[in-house]
Simulated assay, not measured.
Amino acid sequence: MNSPSVPGRCRRRTVTAGAAAAVLALLAVASPAVASAPAPAPPGVQRSLEALVSELGVPGALVTVREPGGRTVSGAAGVGDVATGAPVPLDGEVRAGSNTKTFVAVVVLQLVAEGRVRLNSNIEHYLPGLVRGKGIDGRHITVRQLLQQTSGLPNYSDYLGEDVRHFEPRELLDLALRHPAAFRPGTSWQYSNTNYLLAGLLVERVTGHTLAQELDTRIVQRLGLRHTYFPAPGETALRGPHPHGYYRDAGHLLDVTEFDPSWAWAAGQLVSTNADLDTFFTALLTPGRLLPAAQLAQMQAATATADATFGPGARYGLGLVSRPLSCGGRYWGHGGSFPGYETRGGATEDGRAASVAVTEQVTDSARRQHLDDLVDGALCEAAAAAR
């Protein structure tokens, strides 16, 4: 997701590029102890993970792969704390960014299955008078268009700048509505966090509960996700073992692990782990686990081309991205980009899943492609291992 620049007040430590390189060099010698696990990642996956650190310069990287029979393997590379050289926790918590959108879309589709929400109803029906602006009218924007990013609503996070104070969702919506629509609803596709801001408000209005409560009850508890949660208001630290997250500024790595994530809310506030994300996406593709078959089919009706945002061949369904695999077939996931962390991953319908996280928000195409290639390679290796 688009995210604001990191202001000075978010900087816990400043580490020079030289010091970081020295720590990473030391870790390369000790890497077997850092990445050790009862079920290590396949060699090809581990090499790709280490290349993220040694060749592309991210401070830390971690991966978890689920094979079709349910066996899980994990790997890590780099450091979990640049200042101390502490190892990367094999399944450490990270800010999962826009993977949150898939969780929110699942809750909305559960409400559709319960007859409490209709995908083709306009958002005005659920949030009367709330969505108005230049070229913007909630009477002409459907719930489906919000979930599929075809509403034309401006992206509020494009206008945040360096302001990462605590935000209420309505403040973020007001910020978006000061700007004109990008296109008439349903006539094009454009990624906008504002769509999921409204989806979160819809969930709260229909259920009478907070979005955090609904995510926890309907998904987290149902699947037994041990390290997935929606941070409480004012909560700035991660609760469990985690690698530190960094922002790169003029050759320095700034520790941005702890700050208020409320600016992301329903579009990207979730905290999770690779293993929990693998569990979530695997369950999502199993009819009846999270969604009835009819709603899952609607979610997977990925008719919107999303190449510019998610890479060649990507298509966007209802909060779910479909991507082609080099070994044949497709996988379903989302991915997230958040100050300090970048995540990629997804699952296939035969039970494979892979999630990778790095401890720096990735803004260049080379490193993004490497992350996508790593997921592709992990899922293809899992298919080969199952033969």
Rank of each mutant, 00 (worst) to 15 (best):
P43Q: 04
Q110P: 02
A37W: 11
S36P: 05
A33K: 13
L119W: 08
S74D: 06
A96F: 03
T102L: 01
P38K: 06
E114H: 04
S36A: 14
V107F: 07
N120K: 07
V34S: 15
R118G: 11
T72G: 00
R116F: 12
V65Q: 03
G60D: 06
L26K: 04
A86P: 00
G69W: 05
R47N: 10
G44E: 09
R66V: 14
R47Q: 14
V117T: 07
A33S: 13
A21V: 05
P68V: 13
L24E: 12
G75P: 12
Q46H: 14
G80P: 01
Q46G: 11
V106F: 01
V88A: 04
V65H: 05
A33D: 06
L90Y: 02
D81P: 01
V34P: 00
E50C: 02
A35R: 15
T72E: 15
L49E: 07
R118C: 09
L49S: 05
V107G: 00
L52C: 06
S31L: 13
V34K: 08
V79A: 15
Q46I: 07
D91L: 02
A83Q: 12
P68I: 12
T102N: 03
G97Q: 02
G69T: 10
L109I: 11
Q46V: 10
A61T: 05
L52A: 08
T100K: 02
Q46M: 09
S36I: 10
P68L: 13
V117E: 02
D91C: 03
L90A: 11
A113Y: 00
L49Q: 03
G97Y: 07
S31R: 15
R95Q: 11
E50G: 03
L27M: 15
V79Q: 01
A83V: 13
P89I: 11
G92T: 10
L49V: 09
A37S: 14
A33T: 14
P32I: 06
V65W: 03
R116P: 11
A76V: 13
V23A: 14
A20R: 03
V112E: 11
D91H: 06
S48D: 15
R47S: 14
A28L: 08
S54R: 15
A21T: 10
V108G: 02
Q46D: 14
A83I: 07
G78H: 02
G44N: 08
S31A: 13
A28V: 00
V63G: 05
L56K: 15
T64E: 15
N120L: 13
L49R: 00
V112R: 00
G70L: 10
A105S: 15
T72D: 06
L56P: 08
E93R: 01
V34E: 06
D81Y: 06
P59R: 07
A86N: 07
P43F: 01
Q110H: 05
P43T: 00
E93A: 11
G69H: 10
A37Y: 08
G92P: 02
A22H: 08
G78Q: 05
A22K: 08
N99A: 08
V106A: 04
S54Y: 09
G92N: 08
A39V: 15
R116Y: 10
